[in-house]
Design a protein around this nucleic acid. Structure first.
Length: 254
DNA sequence: ATGTAGCTCAGCATTACATCA
DNA sequence: TATGATGTAATGCTGAGCTAC
């Protein structure tokens, strides 16, 4: 028979009414331990969260409790302590998360502002270019220019066709079975290749103007244009956009 | 050496009650 | 005063470790 069972039987023999109910009272018919008892138990708990059997018996004797009661107090105390610790850790993680989220938001706004500025500058440059062309007014030059434009357009088309042939390979390579990007191995698409094409599309195709703009905006060897970064960003762009549009996935905190 | 029954103990979920707003 | 939320001592069950047979 365990200590607890002994104690319960003892209580029941003293107070028959206890046999009807579950016994939640100590020797002195107190449900709660006294302040002194709690203080001693707390002190012991601070030095060791698990009590050796010998110390348990000794402490129980000192406090006028059953060893079983001391053991249970330690058990409950450990559970409370654990959940408190869990709560603390949770709060720390939550705080870290909130900091990162607000950092992310401000970076997103900064990026949006930069993109808008870029649009504005691009339009301005194109407008200037148009004006220059119109005010020159030389028909021959315009014809020459337009024929050169056609030529370069044809060259561009040929080049695009060639690139289209290469690109499918790339797309297969870009996302493996496990969904992990494997980078761009084709020389045409290394750093200045694939990324430059993306930028060219943005700046209005091939031509001096586009080249000029691209050089102004970002040096070719900039870390911001490295294929890994772009690839990584591209692969996550949907996720980020989704998260920021409908229902942010961190909203569940609130 | 191995299997098994019996015992103790701790962990865990839950209960029963006290206390407080 | 009644009531719901919270804190706490205790219960019941379970599995692990140990021992005797």
């Amino acid at each position: 028979m365990t200590e607890g069972e002994e104690y319960c039987l003892a209580r029941m023999s003293v107070d028959p009414f206890m046999a009807m109910k579950k016994s939640n009272y100590n020797k002195n018919n107190q449900r709660r331990f006294s302040d002194e008892q709690i203080k001693s138990l707390e002190m012991m708990f601070e030095s060791e969260t698990k009590l050796e059997p010998r110390k348990k018996v000794q402490l129980a004797r000192e406090l006028g409790l059953q060893p079983r009661q001391v053991a249970i107090w330690f058990q409950n105390k450990r559970a409370r302590w654990k959940s408190k610790q869990l709560e603390t850790e949770f709060n720390i993680l939550k705080q870290n998360y909130n900091d990162l989220a607000s950092q992310f938001e401000s970076l997103k706004k900064e990026k949006q502002a930069l993109v808008s500025e870029l649009h504005r500058l691009n339009e301005e440059v194109q407008k200037t270019h148009e004006e220059k062309r119109l005010c020159c007014g030389d028909q021959a030059a315009v014809v020459a220019l337009s024929s050169t434009d056609h030529e370069s357009e044809n060259e561009e088309n040929t080049r695009r066709e060639q690139e289209e042939e290469v690109r499918p390979e790339m797309e297969v390579c870009e996302k493996g079975d496990d969904g992990v990007l494997c980078g761009h191995h084709n020389d045409d698409y290394d750093d200045g290749g694939y990324n430059n094409d993306i930028k060219r599309e943005y700046f209005g195709g091939f031509g001096e103007e586009a080249d000029h703009l691209m050089n102004i905006v970002e040096p070719a060897d900039s870390c911001l244009t490295s294929s890994d970064d772009w690839g990584g960003f591209k692969s996550n762009a949907n996720l980020l956009d989704q998260s920021s549009s409908n229902c942010p996935w961190w909203d569940f905190w609130s």
